[in-house]
Design a protein around this nucleic acid. Structure first.
Lengths: 335, 335
DNA sequence: TTGTAGGCGTTATCAG
DNA sequence: CTGATAACGCCTACAA
């Protein structure tokens, strides 16, 4: 029960291996009839080309590596979906390298897999290009950044400043006082990121432009309990300072908004009536709870990053390209 | 600046490629002097063997695949460390496949990487052997289960029943009432796991053997806020039912124990004096907070799983082996 | 448009 | 012990 090889396919289809190879790499110069015969043989034998042999033969391995921080947050799940969809379409496999901690990074740097296996590399959130270059652990291979940007390489990133600005512009449409809840800057010192700083600066600029002050802002860890406490703190302030119009609270992540909704509910406050809430992320449950929030085209960003890399793999030479993605406001019941 | 090949090394060392290959695979039949010369050449050239070529020629790629559920919990980080350490020692690379959702599983099943790249497969927590066999997506390759068990394949697993029992035996050493906090059964229906059921059955059997009743038990989601609420519920009960002796609470996960400690503190209760707390996991912070808890040799389990797989890869044929690992109680201040 | 042959970097076999 | 040399599965000229 050996795995079938290109030889087997050629024999079965009654053609030469060269022809099989051509249909595999859909080379144009193959007669339609021949192609179909080969395809049939491939299907019959359940043949899959051996990527290692492909790689050795001088070509490519049709796999790319993706390095990203901790998985399991919705953002990275969606990002991975976007990337994988695009790569799969182009018949590329993806190898995942989660950067759980520093030692793992070291391990990857010395890894054969990173150095050899992949035809290209996508790095999410953290720009490690310089690090990799210094270590010269890998033959320079096409690289693309996603959810991060650098002038040196292709990148696809989310414009969190714009996201914050959109939230701010929506917030000031109502007369009440404005509050905000932020997330503490990233946990891991090794890989600083600045999404929340960006959201904040966009938000503040919008308020500023409207001549509106920010009443109070609180910062919370990215965890449900901390969020609930922060929500309570905000509502304490808001209720103490209550003027006529309902206040607006911008929660810079839906996790925070969820806690705020819970806390408001516990206090008998009706979101959308007694207070306005604007979230950020548009998590799956947001629609059900009527949360007005910012939707990020995360899959789209992943897809675009993959496309950028694929174009390089197909030989594109040119200056680094930057693709910016904008969140958009989804207005629902809470604001 | 082409990457050096085995040819380059052979030339530089003044030997044949066969010899270089032998030292690479540390074949015994190489004179020490020759070996050193080759090693020197390898170092000088910064040569690294091309795993794809190895695969094509010799049949093995020196990489293994690891399929596991969501990363980012401490347990899996430690598990991965144990696995990676052992594999790295044997000069194997590891490819990680996070099973974030069902669609991703489908994707993996059709993946070249899973089918070709790996010489072996380790599956954590979920036994997907049957699924893979049915799909026959891959040439049957050596497989090992870790944190799960099955009579059909090698496995290394944690004995949670024993862990629960140890907690129970420690709990009944003191006279007060006994309470327990459990974690809701796993979120994802696709991959049911039963760690908490096991911990519970061990715990209950110990109480039973000691002729002691369980006063009250509560179940919580695996999340800090839910845990805090559950902790409050337990303490409400405990304070209402208070007898003379301090009660004992077994929190089946340190996440729960942490919330319990917080809630106790908020109520002015002194752990270790006014109530006893036993956790489970021995998370990094447990020592600092003086938490009595169960330590699991997670890295050891990972290491052993890797060792089992490596022995298969080295040709071991024999009945499936099961390696059981036991948590042990770490007694600190809280109980 | 297609088949044949050489080569990719290693391992494995087989003489010496 | 070691050096040739034939695979390994595929791609890519080159020739037909």
């Amino acid at each position: 029960m050996r795995k079938p090889t290109i030889q087997d396919v050629a024999r079965k289809a009654g053609v030469g291996v060269g022809t099989v190879s051509r249909v595999l790499n859909n080379h144009p110069a193959v007669k339609a009839a021949t192609r179909e015969g080969v395809m049939a043989a491939i299907a019959a034998l359940e043949y899959t080309p051996n990527p290692h042999a492909r790689r050795v033969a001088g070509g490519r391995s049709y796999t790319v590596s993706v390095m990203l921080p901790v998985l399991s947050t919705e953002f990275y799940t969606r990002l991975l979906s976007g990337l994988e969809a695009a790569f799969q379409e182009a018949r590329y496999d993806v190898a995942i390298f989660p950067l759980l901690d520093r030692s793992r990074l070291e391990r990857y740097l010395g890894s054969h897999t990173l150095a050899y296996q992949a035809d290209g590399l996508v790095m999410a959130t953290h720009d490690l290009t310089r690090l990799l270059r210094d270590r010269r652990t890998l033959t320079p291979q096409p690289t693309v950044l996603v959810d991060a940007h650098s002038p040196d390489v292709d990148c696809a990133f989310m414009d969190n400043v714009t996201g914050g600005r959109l939230a701010g512009e929506h917030a000031v449409k109502a007369p009440g006082a404005v509050y905000a809840m932020w997330v503490e800057t990233e946990l891991d010192q090794l890989f600083p990121a600045r999404v929340f700083e960006d959201r904040r600066s966009g938000f503040l600029s919008a308020l500023d432009r409207a001549g509106r002050p920010l009443a109070t802002e609180v910062t919370s860890a990215f965890d449900t309990l901390a969020a609930r406490n922060a929500a309570a703190a905000v509502l304490d302030r808001a209720q103490a300072e209550a003027s006529g119009a309902p206040c607006t609270v911008f929660a810079a992540a839906d996790l925070l908004a969820s806690a705020l909704l819970d806390e408001a509910h516990a206090r008998g406050l009706r979101p959308g009536v007694d207070l306005r809430v604007i979230g950020f992320d548009d998590q799956p449950w947001a629609a059900a709870r009527g949360l007005t929030t910012l939707h990020q085209p995360v899959e789209g960003m992943g897809h675009e990053a993959a496309t950028l890399l694929l174009s390089r793999l197909n030989g594109y030479r040119g200056a680094p390209r930057a693709r910016r993605f904008e969140p958009h406001l989804v207005v629902r019941d809470t604001a």
